[in-house]
Amino acid sequence: MDLPVMPPVSPMLAKSAKKIPPGMHYEGKWDGFRAIIFRDGDEVEIGSRNERPMTRYFPELAEAARAHLPRRCVVDGEIIIVTDHHLDFERLLDRIHPADSRVRELAERTPASFVAFDLLALDDVNHMEQPFAQRREALAAALADAGAPIYLTQATTDAGEAEQWFDQFEGAGLDGLIAKKLEDPYRPGERILTKIKHDRTADCVVAGFRWHKSGGVVGSLLLGLYDDAGVLHFIGVSASFPMKRRAELVEELEPYRMGDEVFSEHPWAEWARAEAHQDSRLPGGQSRWNAGKDMSWQPLRPELVVEVAYDHMQGTRLRHTAQFRRWRPDRDPLSCTYDQLQEPVSYDIASVLSRP
Protein backbone atom coordinates (compact mmCIF):
# COMPACT_ATOMS: atom_id res chain seq x y z
CA MET A 1 0.00 0.00 0.00
CA ASP A 2 1.36 3.39 -1.05
CA LEU A 3 -1.04 6.28 -0.36
CA PRO A 4 -0.46 9.99 0.41
CA VAL A 5 -2.00 9.28 3.83
CA MET A 6 -0.92 5.96 5.33
CA PRO A 7 -2.38 3.97 8.23
CA PRO A 8 -2.70 4.25 11.11
CA VAL A 9 -4.53 7.57 11.42
CA SER A 10 -6.38 8.70 14.55
CA PRO A 11 -9.74 10.15 13.46
CA MET A 12 -10.80 13.70 14.23
CA LEU A 13 -13.00 13.81 17.34
CA ALA A 14 -15.81 15.93 18.80
CA LYS A 15 -16.52 17.86 21.98
CA SER A 16 -20.01 18.15 23.46
CA ALA A 17 -22.41 21.07 23.21
CA LYS A 18 -25.91 21.42 24.64
CA LYS A 19 -27.34 23.32 21.67
CA ILE A 20 -26.90 23.21 17.92
CA PRO A 21 -24.35 25.92 17.04
CA PRO A 22 -25.31 28.28 14.20
CA GLY A 23 -23.56 28.72 10.88
CA MET A 24 -22.02 25.27 10.51
CA HIS A 25 -22.25 22.04 8.49
CA TYR A 26 -24.54 19.43 10.13
CA GLU A 27 -24.72 15.64 9.86
CA GLY A 28 -26.36 12.86 11.83
CA LYS A 29 -24.27 11.27 14.59
CA TRP A 30 -24.11 7.60 13.65
CA ASP A 31 -24.11 4.97 16.38
CA GLY A 32 -21.53 2.51 15.13
CA PHE A 33 -17.78 1.91 14.92
CA ARG A 34 -15.72 4.87 13.76
CA ALA A 35 -13.45 3.73 10.96
CA ILE A 36 -11.08 5.01 8.30
CA ILE A 37 -10.89 2.97 5.10
CA PHE A 38 -7.60 2.96 3.18
CA ARG A 39 -7.79 1.62 -0.39
CA ASP A 40 -4.90 1.24 -2.81
CA GLY A 41 -6.15 -0.89 -5.69
CA ASP A 42 -7.00 -4.32 -4.34
CA GLU A 43 -5.37 -3.56 -0.98
CA VAL A 44 -7.89 -2.43 1.64
CA GLU A 45 -7.32 -1.71 5.31
CA ILE A 46 -9.99 -0.63 7.78
CA GLY A 47 -8.61 1.26 10.77
CA SER A 48 -10.47 1.80 14.05
CA ARG A 49 -10.75 4.86 16.26
CA ASN A 50 -7.86 3.53 18.36
CA GLU A 51 -5.80 3.03 15.19
CA ARG A 52 -6.09 -0.77 15.23
CA PRO A 53 -6.93 -2.73 12.06
CA MET A 54 -10.51 -4.04 11.82
CA THR A 55 -10.38 -5.44 8.30
CA ARG A 56 -10.71 -9.08 9.36
CA TYR A 57 -13.94 -8.37 11.26
CA PHE A 58 -15.72 -6.84 8.26
CA PRO A 59 -14.72 -8.80 5.13
CA GLU A 60 -17.88 -7.70 3.32
CA LEU A 61 -16.86 -4.04 3.70
CA ALA A 62 -13.42 -4.73 2.27
CA GLU A 63 -15.15 -6.16 -0.80
CA ALA A 64 -17.56 -3.23 -0.90
CA ALA A 65 -14.64 -0.78 -0.76
CA ARG A 66 -13.08 -2.45 -3.81
CA ALA A 67 -16.39 -2.24 -5.65
CA HIS A 68 -17.56 1.26 -4.72
CA LEU A 69 -14.72 3.45 -3.43
CA PRO A 70 -12.22 5.23 -5.70
CA ARG A 71 -9.25 3.03 -6.56
CA ARG A 72 -6.86 5.08 -4.39
CA CYS A 73 -8.43 6.88 -1.44
CA VAL A 74 -8.61 7.34 2.33
CA VAL A 75 -12.14 7.89 3.65
CA ASP A 76 -13.34 8.59 7.19
CA GLY A 77 -16.74 7.28 8.27
CA GLU A 78 -18.76 4.93 10.44
CA ILE A 79 -19.42 1.20 10.26
CA ILE A 80 -23.06 0.42 11.03
CA ILE A 81 -25.39 -2.57 11.03
CA VAL A 82 -29.11 -2.16 10.38
CA THR A 83 -31.75 -4.62 11.60
CA ASP A 84 -35.50 -4.01 11.47
CA HIS A 85 -34.98 -0.56 9.88
CA HIS A 86 -32.93 0.60 12.89
CA LEU A 87 -29.25 0.88 13.82
CA ASP A 88 -28.19 -2.14 15.86
CA PHE A 89 -25.00 -1.60 17.86
CA GLU A 90 -25.25 -4.99 19.58
CA ARG A 91 -24.79 -6.77 16.26
CA LEU A 92 -21.61 -4.76 15.71
CA LEU A 93 -20.25 -6.00 19.03
CA ASP A 94 -20.86 -9.57 17.89
CA ARG A 95 -18.49 -9.06 14.97
CA ILE A 96 -15.40 -8.65 17.16
CA HIS A 97 -14.88 -12.40 17.37
CA PRO A 98 -11.65 -14.42 17.27
CA ALA A 99 -13.05 -17.12 14.99
CA ASP A 100 -12.87 -16.22 11.30
CA SER A 101 -15.65 -18.70 10.51
CA ARG A 102 -17.98 -16.93 12.95
CA VAL A 103 -17.13 -13.51 11.52
CA ARG A 104 -17.91 -14.66 7.98
CA GLU A 105 -21.15 -16.29 9.10
CA LEU A 106 -22.28 -13.01 10.68
CA ALA A 107 -21.11 -11.04 7.62
CA GLU A 108 -23.61 -13.08 5.62
CA ARG A 109 -26.39 -12.93 8.20
CA THR A 110 -26.12 -9.27 9.30
CA PRO A 111 -23.90 -7.46 6.78
CA ALA A 112 -22.43 -4.12 7.75
CA SER A 113 -22.57 -0.82 5.87
CA PHE A 114 -20.16 2.11 5.76
CA VAL A 115 -21.32 5.72 5.97
CA ALA A 116 -18.66 8.11 4.66
CA PHE A 117 -18.37 11.66 5.94
CA ASP A 118 -14.82 12.91 5.25
CA LEU A 119 -12.07 12.53 2.67
CA LEU A 120 -8.42 12.43 3.72
CA ALA A 121 -6.82 11.49 0.41
CA LEU A 122 -7.77 10.80 -3.21
CA ASP A 123 -5.40 9.40 -5.83
CA ASP A 124 -2.05 11.09 -5.08
CA VAL A 125 -3.52 14.13 -3.29
CA ASN A 126 -3.49 14.59 0.49
CA HIS A 127 -6.68 16.54 1.32
CA MET A 128 -6.15 16.86 5.07
CA GLU A 129 -4.99 20.48 4.95
CA GLN A 130 -7.89 21.55 2.77
CA PRO A 131 -10.93 23.18 4.44
CA PHE A 132 -13.76 20.78 5.16
CA ALA A 133 -16.02 22.42 2.58
CA GLN A 134 -13.61 21.35 -0.19
CA ARG A 135 -13.12 17.89 1.29
CA ARG A 136 -16.89 17.36 1.43
CA GLU A 137 -17.33 18.47 -2.17
CA ALA A 138 -14.55 16.13 -3.31
CA LEU A 139 -16.03 13.26 -1.26
CA ALA A 140 -19.48 13.73 -2.79
CA ALA A 141 -17.99 13.68 -6.27
CA ALA A 142 -15.88 10.61 -5.49
CA LEU A 143 -18.92 8.68 -4.23
CA ALA A 144 -21.37 9.89 -6.88
CA ASP A 145 -21.62 6.41 -8.40
CA ALA A 146 -21.24 4.42 -5.17
CA GLY A 147 -23.94 2.00 -4.11
CA ALA A 148 -24.97 0.05 -1.03
CA PRO A 149 -23.43 -0.78 1.36
CA ILE A 150 -21.31 2.37 0.89
CA TYR A 151 -23.17 5.60 1.64
CA LEU A 152 -22.45 9.32 1.78
CA THR A 153 -23.88 10.81 4.97
CA GLN A 154 -26.65 13.34 4.46
CA ALA A 155 -25.65 16.89 5.33
CA THR A 156 -27.09 20.38 5.55
CA THR A 157 -26.02 23.91 6.40
CA ASP A 158 -29.58 24.84 7.36
CA ALA A 159 -29.82 24.97 11.17
CA GLY A 160 -33.61 24.61 10.99
CA GLU A 161 -33.32 21.39 9.02
CA ALA A 162 -30.67 20.19 11.48
CA GLU A 163 -33.13 20.75 14.33
CA GLN A 164 -35.63 18.50 12.54
CA TRP A 165 -32.99 15.84 12.00
CA PHE A 166 -32.05 15.99 15.68
CA ASP A 167 -35.59 14.88 16.57
CA GLN A 168 -36.28 12.56 13.64
CA PHE A 169 -33.03 10.63 13.28
CA GLU A 170 -33.10 9.35 16.85
CA GLY A 171 -36.07 7.22 15.86
CA ALA A 172 -33.75 5.35 13.47
CA GLY A 173 -31.08 4.81 16.14
CA LEU A 174 -28.81 7.81 15.57
CA ASP A 175 -27.83 9.55 18.79
CA GLY A 176 -27.62 13.22 17.86
CA LEU A 177 -25.85 15.53 15.43
CA ILE A 178 -22.31 16.44 14.46
CA ALA A 179 -21.52 20.05 13.57
CA LYS A 180 -18.41 20.96 11.56
CA LYS A 181 -16.81 24.25 10.63
CA LEU A 182 -16.53 24.52 6.88
CA GLU A 183 -13.10 26.13 7.04
CA ASP A 184 -11.40 23.56 9.31
CA PRO A 185 -8.63 21.24 8.05
CA TYR A 186 -8.53 17.60 9.15
CA ARG A 187 -6.77 17.33 12.52
CA PRO A 188 -6.21 13.70 13.58
CA GLY A 189 -7.01 13.02 17.24
CA GLU A 190 -8.12 16.59 17.98
CA ARG A 191 -11.59 17.46 19.27
CA ILE A 192 -12.50 20.21 16.84
CA LEU A 193 -15.91 18.85 15.83
CA THR A 194 -19.05 19.48 17.90
CA LYS A 195 -21.50 16.77 18.96
CA ILE A 196 -25.01 17.52 20.16
CA LYS A 197 -26.70 14.62 21.91
CA HIS A 198 -30.05 14.13 23.59
CA ASP A 199 -30.03 14.79 27.34
CA ARG A 200 -32.68 13.05 29.39
CA THR A 201 -33.08 11.96 32.99
CA ALA A 202 -34.48 8.86 34.65
CA ASP A 203 -34.99 7.73 38.23
CA CYS A 204 -33.32 4.34 38.68
CA VAL A 205 -32.90 1.80 41.44
CA VAL A 206 -29.33 1.35 42.69
CA ALA A 207 -29.11 -2.39 43.32
CA GLY A 208 -25.35 -2.82 43.52
CA PHE A 209 -21.93 -1.35 42.85
CA ARG A 210 -18.50 -2.33 41.62
CA TRP A 211 -15.25 -1.38 43.31
CA HIS A 212 -12.91 0.99 41.51
CA LYS A 213 -9.82 -0.57 39.93
CA SER A 214 -7.68 1.33 42.47
CA GLY A 215 -9.50 -0.46 45.30
CA GLY A 216 -11.33 0.80 48.37
CA VAL A 217 -13.68 3.23 46.60
CA VAL A 218 -16.77 2.88 44.43
CA GLY A 219 -16.13 2.40 40.73
CA SER A 220 -19.69 2.35 39.37
CA LEU A 221 -23.30 2.18 40.50
CA LEU A 222 -25.42 -0.60 38.98
CA LEU A 223 -28.78 0.73 37.84
CA GLY A 224 -32.09 -1.04 37.43
CA LEU A 225 -35.65 -0.44 36.25
CA TYR A 226 -38.78 -2.51 36.88
CA ASP A 227 -40.87 -3.95 34.07
CA ASP A 228 -44.65 -4.33 34.11
CA ALA A 229 -44.32 -7.73 35.81
CA GLY A 230 -42.34 -6.28 38.70
CA VAL A 231 -38.97 -7.72 37.61
CA LEU A 232 -35.94 -5.48 38.19
CA HIS A 233 -33.71 -5.37 35.09
CA PHE A 234 -30.10 -4.25 35.01
CA ILE A 235 -29.95 -1.35 32.52
CA GLY A 236 -26.41 0.02 32.89
CA VAL A 237 -24.10 1.96 35.16
CA SER A 238 -23.25 5.40 36.46
CA ALA A 239 -19.48 5.60 36.76
CA SER A 240 -18.02 9.10 36.30
CA PHE A 241 -17.14 10.38 39.78
CA PRO A 242 -14.24 12.37 41.22
CA MET A 243 -12.08 10.26 43.56
CA LYS A 244 -13.35 12.13 46.62
CA ARG A 245 -16.94 11.39 45.66
CA ARG A 246 -16.09 7.71 45.14
CA ALA A 247 -14.89 7.52 48.75
CA GLU A 248 -18.03 9.26 50.02
CA LEU A 249 -20.21 6.76 48.17
CA VAL A 250 -18.67 3.88 50.15
CA GLU A 251 -20.10 5.34 53.35
CA GLU A 252 -23.44 6.25 51.77
CA LEU A 253 -23.94 2.74 50.40
CA GLU A 254 -22.72 0.82 53.44
CA PRO A 255 -26.14 0.60 55.20
CA TYR A 256 -27.62 -1.07 52.11
CA ARG A 257 -24.98 -3.74 51.50
CA MET A 258 -26.16 -7.36 51.54
CA GLY A 259 -24.10 -10.20 52.94
CA ASP A 260 -23.75 -13.67 51.46
CA GLU A 261 -26.36 -15.05 53.82
CA VAL A 262 -29.14 -12.98 52.24
CA PHE A 263 -27.75 -12.64 48.71
CA SER A 264 -30.24 -15.20 47.42
CA GLU A 265 -32.99 -12.65 48.11
CA HIS A 266 -31.47 -10.09 45.76
CA PRO A 267 -33.32 -9.51 42.43
CA TRP A 268 -30.10 -10.22 40.54
CA ALA A 269 -29.02 -13.28 42.54
CA GLU A 270 -29.05 -15.32 39.33
CA TRP A 271 -26.12 -13.40 37.86
CA ALA A 272 -23.68 -16.15 38.88
CA ARG A 273 -25.37 -18.63 36.55
CA ALA A 274 -23.91 -18.30 33.05
CA GLU A 275 -27.23 -19.09 31.37
CA ALA A 276 -28.80 -16.10 33.11
CA HIS A 277 -26.86 -13.81 30.78
CA GLN A 278 -28.14 -15.25 27.52
CA ASP A 279 -31.34 -13.22 27.21
CA SER A 280 -30.67 -10.26 29.51
CA ARG A 281 -27.31 -8.93 30.58
CA LEU A 282 -26.94 -9.09 34.32
CA PRO A 283 -24.08 -7.54 36.30
CA GLY A 284 -21.06 -9.81 36.41
CA GLY A 285 -21.35 -11.05 32.84
CA GLN A 286 -18.13 -11.56 30.90
CA SER A 287 -17.78 -10.73 27.23
CA ARG A 288 -15.06 -10.31 24.63
CA TRP A 289 -14.97 -6.62 25.54
CA ASN A 290 -14.29 -7.07 29.26
CA ALA A 291 -12.23 -10.27 29.19
CA GLY A 292 -9.84 -10.28 32.13
CA LYS A 293 -11.61 -7.42 33.86
CA ASP A 294 -12.96 -7.94 37.38
CA MET A 295 -16.73 -7.80 36.89
CA SER A 296 -17.63 -8.90 40.43
CA TRP A 297 -20.04 -6.62 42.25
CA GLN A 298 -21.45 -5.84 45.67
CA PRO A 299 -25.23 -6.34 45.99
CA LEU A 300 -27.32 -3.65 47.67
CA ARG A 301 -30.85 -3.83 48.98
CA PRO A 302 -32.88 -2.28 46.12
CA GLU A 303 -34.08 0.65 48.21
CA LEU A 304 -32.01 3.54 46.89
CA VAL A 305 -33.24 5.68 44.00
CA VAL A 306 -30.95 7.93 41.99
CA GLU A 307 -31.70 10.43 39.23
CA VAL A 308 -29.29 10.01 36.33
CA ALA A 309 -28.86 11.75 33.00
CA TYR A 310 -28.69 9.60 29.90
CA ASP A 311 -28.64 10.29 26.18
CA HIS A 312 -29.65 7.12 24.40
CA MET A 313 -31.29 3.73 24.99
CA GLN A 314 -30.28 0.61 23.06
CA GLY A 315 -33.27 -1.68 23.44
CA THR A 316 -33.81 -2.03 27.20
CA ARG A 317 -30.33 -0.81 28.18
CA LEU A 318 -28.48 2.48 28.42
CA ARG A 319 -26.21 2.82 25.40
CA HIS A 320 -23.64 4.90 27.32
CA THR A 321 -22.66 5.47 30.94
CA ALA A 322 -25.27 7.50 32.83
CA GLN A 323 -24.36 10.64 34.74
CA PHE A 324 -25.20 10.86 38.45
CA ARG A 325 -27.48 13.83 39.20
CA ARG A 326 -28.87 13.36 42.75
CA TRP A 327 -30.35 10.91 45.19
CA ARG A 328 -34.14 10.71 45.19
CA PRO A 329 -35.21 9.68 48.74
CA ASP A 330 -38.75 10.80 47.87
CA ARG A 331 -39.17 8.09 45.21
CA ASP A 332 -40.51 4.59 45.83
CA PRO A 333 -38.10 2.15 44.13
CA LEU A 334 -41.03 0.14 42.74
CA SER A 335 -42.16 3.26 40.85
CA CYS A 336 -38.90 3.30 38.85
CA THR A 337 -40.16 1.66 35.67
CA TYR A 338 -39.48 1.81 31.95
CA ASP A 339 -42.64 3.91 31.54
CA GLN A 340 -40.74 7.07 32.50
CA LEU A 341 -38.35 6.77 29.54
CA GLN A 342 -39.09 8.94 26.55
CA GLU A 343 -39.64 6.78 23.48
CA PRO A 344 -38.40 8.38 20.25
CA VAL A 345 -40.79 8.33 17.33
CA SER A 346 -39.85 5.50 14.98
CA TYR A 347 -38.04 6.65 11.83
CA ASP A 348 -36.93 4.39 8.99
CA ILE A 349 -33.15 4.27 8.67
CA ALA A 350 -33.59 4.04 4.89
CA SER A 351 -34.71 7.67 4.92
CA VAL A 352 -31.43 8.65 6.57
CA LEU A 353 -29.25 6.53 4.29
CA SER A 354 -30.92 7.62 1.07
CA ARG A 355 -29.23 10.40 -0.82
CA PRO A 356 -30.83 13.85 -0.50
Rank of each mutant, 00 (worst) to 15 (best):
M1A: 12
M1K: 05
D2K: 11
V9H: 00
M12E: 15
K18L: 14
K19I: 07
I20K: 02
P21Y: 10
P22F: 05
M24S: 07
Y26P: 06
E27K: 05
G28C: 11
K29R: 12
F33K: 05
D40G: 06
G41K: 08
G41Y: 08
E45A: 12
R49N: 09
M54R: 11
R56F: 02
Y57G: 07
F58N: 01
E60V: 05
L61Y: 10
A62Q: 10
L69W: 00
L69K: 00
R72P: 02
C73K: 03
V75H: 00
E78Q: 11
T83Q: 12
E90F: 11
L92Q: 07
L93G: 12
R95Q: 06
P98F: 04
A99W: 08
D100C: 02
V103N: 00
E108R: 15
T110D: 12
T110K: 02
A112E: 01
S113W: 05
F117T: 07
A121S: 03
L122W: 05
V125A: 10
N126M: 04
N126A: 07
N126I: 01
N126Q: 02
H127R: 15
M128W: 04
M128Y: 03
Q130E: 11
A141Y: 04
A142P: 03
A142W: 01
D145H: 14
T157D: 10
D158E: 09
E163P: 06
W165V: 09
D167N: 13
G171Y: 09
D175G: 02
A179M: 07
L182T: 10
E183T: 13
G189T: 01
G189C: 02
E190K: 13
R191Y: 00
K195R: 15
H198Y: 00
R200H: 10
R210Y: 05
R210E: 15
V217S: 14
L223D: 03
G224H: 06
D227F: 04
G230W: 03
V231D: 13
L232C: 01
S240W: 09
F241T: 02
K244W: 11
K244R: 15
A247P: 00
L249S: 09
L249F: 11
L253D: 08
M258T: 02
D260T: 11
E265C: 09
A269R: 12
A269S: 15
W271T: 14
A272G: 09
H277V: 08
H277D: 05
Q278P: 00
D279A: 12
L282S: 02
P283M: 01
G285S: 11
G285W: 03
Q286R: 15
W289H: 15
N290L: 08
K293T: 14
M295G: 01
S296H: 08
E303D: 10
L304G: 05
A309R: 13
M313C: 06
M313H: 04
G315L: 05
T321F: 13
R325C: 14
D330R: 11
D332S: 10
L334C: 08
T337M: 01
Y338P: 00
Q340P: 03
S346E: 13
D348F: 00
